[in-house]
Design a protein around this nucleic acid. Structure first.
Lengths: 101, 101
DNA sequence: TTAACATATGAGCAGATGTTCATATGTTGA
DNA sequence: TCAACATATGAACATCTGCTCATATGTTAA
C-alpha cells in the first residue's frame, strides 16, 4: 500500500487550478497583486505604479476580481482594490522562495 | 515606518515568477506534475494517463524540464521523468487548499 | 443639469501558446 | 548492421492573451 498517495484531481479541479495559476502567470498581474500586499490602491495609482495604461489595468483588475483574488470598494469617484485574502500572499511568497534557491 | 513591507520585486524576479506560474497554468502540465507526485513515469505512460499524444507530452516535458520542475533519467530506450524537488508539490498543494475554501 | 474626473468596457490586433503531423534521433536485440 | 521500439523535434495552424484605442458609465461639485 502506497503512502502519501495524492487524491485524484478531477477535471473540474484541474480546470480551476490551471485557471488560478493563469491569474499569476503574467507579470502585470503579479505587479498589481504585489502592490496590494501592503494596502489597497486605487486604479489610477496602480496604473501609474505598474506602468501600463488605465485601461489595461482595469481589464486585468476585472480578471483578478473574477478569480476572487482581489475585491474592491468605491469611495466617490475612486475605486480601491485590495487582496481578497491571504492566499495570494502565500502563493506568491512560495514562488519567491522557490526562485531564491 | 511600515511593517511587513515586502521587498521590491525587480523586473528579473518578476519575469521568472510569471514564467514559473505559466508552467502550472495549463491542465495538461498540472496532470503531468500531479502524476509524478508519487513516483517517476516514462513518457509513454504519462501520455496514456494524461490522455494526449506522445508528441504533445514530450513537448510539455521539455518545457517543464527547462523550468527545472522535472528531471529525467534514461534506462535503455525508456526515459523516466520525475519531480525535480518538493516545491512543485508545495505549490500545487497550496493552490489546492486555496480552491477548497 | 452639466462639466470634469475616475473607472469600465468592447472591438480589434499582434504575439504567445498547445496541439498535431511528419520525421529525426537514440537504444536494444537479433 | 538493421529492424523495432521509445522519445524528441520542427513546422504549421487554430486558439488564446494582453494590449491599445475609442467610448461608455458612474460620481461629484457647482
Amino acid at each position: 500500500m502506497k503512502v502519501h498517495t495524492p487524491h485524484i484531481l478531477d477535471e473540474d479541479q484541474l480546470f480551476h487550478m490551471s485557471e488560478l495559476f493563469k491569474a499569476f502567470a503574467d507579470s502585470t498581474r503579479i505587479k498589481i497583486l504585489y502592490l496590494l500586499f501592503e494596502e489597497e490602491h486605487c486604479v489610477g495609482d496602480i496604473a501609474e505604479d505598474v506602468g501600463v495604461s488605465q485601461s489595461a489595468i482595469s481589464h486585468q483588475l476585472k480578471l483578478l476580481k473574477h478569480m476572487k483574488l482581489v475585491k474592491s470598494r468605491r469611495e466617490g469617484k475612486t475605486v480601491y482594490y485590495f487582496l481578497a485574502d491571504d492566499h495570494v500572499k502565500t502563493i506568491i511568497n512560495m514562488a519567491k522562495e522557490h526562485l531564491e534557491e
